[in-house]
Design a protein around this nucleic acid. Structure first.
Lengths: 145, 145
DNA sequence: GTACGTGCAAAATGTTTGCATCATT
DNA sequence: AATGATGCAAACATTTTGCACGTAC
């Protein structure tokens, strides 16, 4: 198991208490928090922390490949420390984003034929940097069982 | 062929010159404009138009099912008058969103097994309202051929 | 005539930036 | 010691709102 410190060193990131706390919180939660949510989550346990640092850090983490921004339709970004390609469920009204349960995610991803992606790269002359799949759901009245 | 007027009547929307101009512009372009872009696109040909009306109208169109918001990672929303489920290419740096060429879109969509979607609905107790697939591409140095 | 849409300006929201100070290397 | 990160406040960008006026029905 790799420590956050090691991970940061590998990516040439300075190990400040704020960064480590933010990264660890992001990695520990699967709720894909907004910057604001992450701030409220981490602030209490950290000596000093400002919202600007949260934004700066998230930007740095994304550039280093340790996090990614998830696309949303309500103007505020959500972040995920899991940078692998994996589908999400986005709830329309609340804007919440969940991971799809693993077995469903697998089935969905494996159904995408690799050669289609290759053909897309060829025909559009682009390099595919990611694949974002979101199942859009109406907010369920009942919480998931 | 259905006129915008008929379409609006069917959806109980008032036919104001601004709304019709906005909808027609949105439907005519496949560039998935932001509110601001749509405003600049439509303003010149319209007697009076304010940005607030663009936002109001887009909201109304989305609620009526005549348009939809596309998720983005840069804080400003993009809109599409094509409400069918169809995959997009999103360019990382510029934020531009294109439709995938039809035959590639078909192949991608048809590869998704219908029963996986059914199972998702069953297991999460949700109603799937849409499926959003974005191929993320680094901006290509050369424009598409 | 009534209900609803519009324009304008102001406010709310989310994110970025400039700069002095502070911490990590 | 030098480089880079942080906090704060101000700037910025995008979207929403309140209200007086105008237009579609």
């Amino acid at each position: 198991m790799t420590s956050t410190r090691q991970l940061f060193n590998q990516h040439n990131l300075r190990c400040t208490s704020q960064r480590m706390a933010l990264y660890e919180a992001l990695a520990a939660h699967d709720s894909h928090p907004t910057a604001e949510e992450l701030f409220r989550l981490v602030k209490p346990g950290t000596a000093r922390l400002s919202l600007a640092t949260v934004y700066n850090t998230l930007e740095v983490l994304c550039r280093a490949g340790l996090a990614r921004k998830l696309p949303t339709t309500n103007g505020c970004c959500r972040y995920d420390a899991d940078t692998s390609i994996h589908p999400h469920v986005r709830y329309r009204e609340s804007g919440r984003i969940d991971d799809l349960p693993r077995h469903l995610a697998e089935r969905l991803l494996q159904s995408v034929p690799r050669e289609v992606l290759g053909d897309i790269e060829g025909e559009l002359s682009v390099r595919i940097a990611g694949l974002n799949i979101q199942v859009i759901a109406d907010d369920s009245p009942e919480p998931k069982t």
